[in-house]
């Protein structure tokens, strides 16, 4: 009986501590977010840093996003063909490829790829700057680390991911087209007109809005975990892992929530 009581108290204590830890973490994240938003909209602005981030987050992610969406479009056409021939619905392939890519696959896959490529590098870079006291050095030189490091990355992530996704949409649909025409033997003009007819503004728009959210999430998580990195190489390693894992999970959660908002 006594043993059971002690076990129960332990359980309460542990679960209470876990809940408190979650709230403390959420509080720290929201404080970081609030500080970041304030610094994004108040001068001085570091234009050169922001442009640099446009390049490194946007332009240099293009090959990864392009390849991912291209092969996804290809495999989507192939898979839908093998499924749809069973009930003679081959003509729906173009619609499936176009809608899946624009609504879901381009934003989510681009988001996840950018989380791996950009989120990790942001967390590692800012984490190393924290460990080597470069962030403290910025403060002592009268420059806010939020303005100099965080704001440019978040602005670039939020604005560049939608553009990446628009390009990914085109490349993904092209992937589906290539397989449909050259492997499955569809007529090019039919395929293209079917794709175009099914497409509505909302399909592309929802994907682009999702991309903006995902870009914001990836860069925010990268900056937050890097900024609060622990000491040494191990601290930076943990920060990098946390940045990628948390942004990937948040992307999947927000993808569902945004889909619910757009299409319910």
């Amino acid at each position: 009986m006594l043993f059971k009581k002690i076990a129960f108290v332990d359980l309460c204590q542990n679960s209470g501590a876990a809940v408190l830890a979650v709230f403390a973490k959420a509080g720290r994240l929201f404080a970081f977010l609030g500080c970041t938003l304030k610094h994004i909209f108040t001068p001085p602005f570091f234009y050169k840093n922001t442009l640099q981030q446009f390049l490194s987050i946007g332009y240099y992610s293009l090959p990864v996003v392009g390849l991912t969406t291209f092969f996804t479009g290809m495999v989507l056409a192939l898979q839908s063909y093998t499924g749809f021939t069973r009930f003679n619905a081959e003509s729906a392939i173009s619609a499936v490829v176009t809608l899946s890519i624009t609504r879901e696959l381009a934003p989510v896959l681009a988001g996840l790829m950018v989380a791996g490529r950009v989120g990790a590098s942001i967390a590692a870079e800012i984490g190393t700057m924290r460990v080597t006291e470069q962030i403290d050095a910025l403060s002592t030189l009268s420059v806010s680390p939020y303005k100099y490091l965080v704001a440019p990355r978040i602005i670039a992530g939020t604005l560049m991911l939608p553009i990446l996704v628009l390009i990914g949409d085109i490349i993904g649909i092209l992937g589906g087209y290539v397989v449909s025409i050259h492997v499955l033997g569809f007529s090019p003009s039919n395929y293209l007109s079917q794709s175009w007819d099914i497409l509505q503004f909302m399909d592309v728009f929802s994907g682009v809005v999702k991309a903006a959210f995902f870009g914001f999430i990836v860069t925010l998580m990268g900056c937050y975990h890097g900024y609060n990195s622990g000491r040494g190489a191990q601290g930076v390693g943990i920060a990098t892992t946390n940045a990628v894992v948390s942004s990937s999970i948040l992307i999947l959660i927000f993808n569902y929530l945004l889909t619910q908002v757009f299409f319910s």
Binding site: M129, T132, E133, Q134, D136, A137
Partner: peptide, 8 residues
């Protein structure tokens, strides 16, 4: 700073 903390 102890380690220099130069911006690399």
């Amino acid at each position: 700073f102890q380690g220099g903390a130069l911006f690399d």
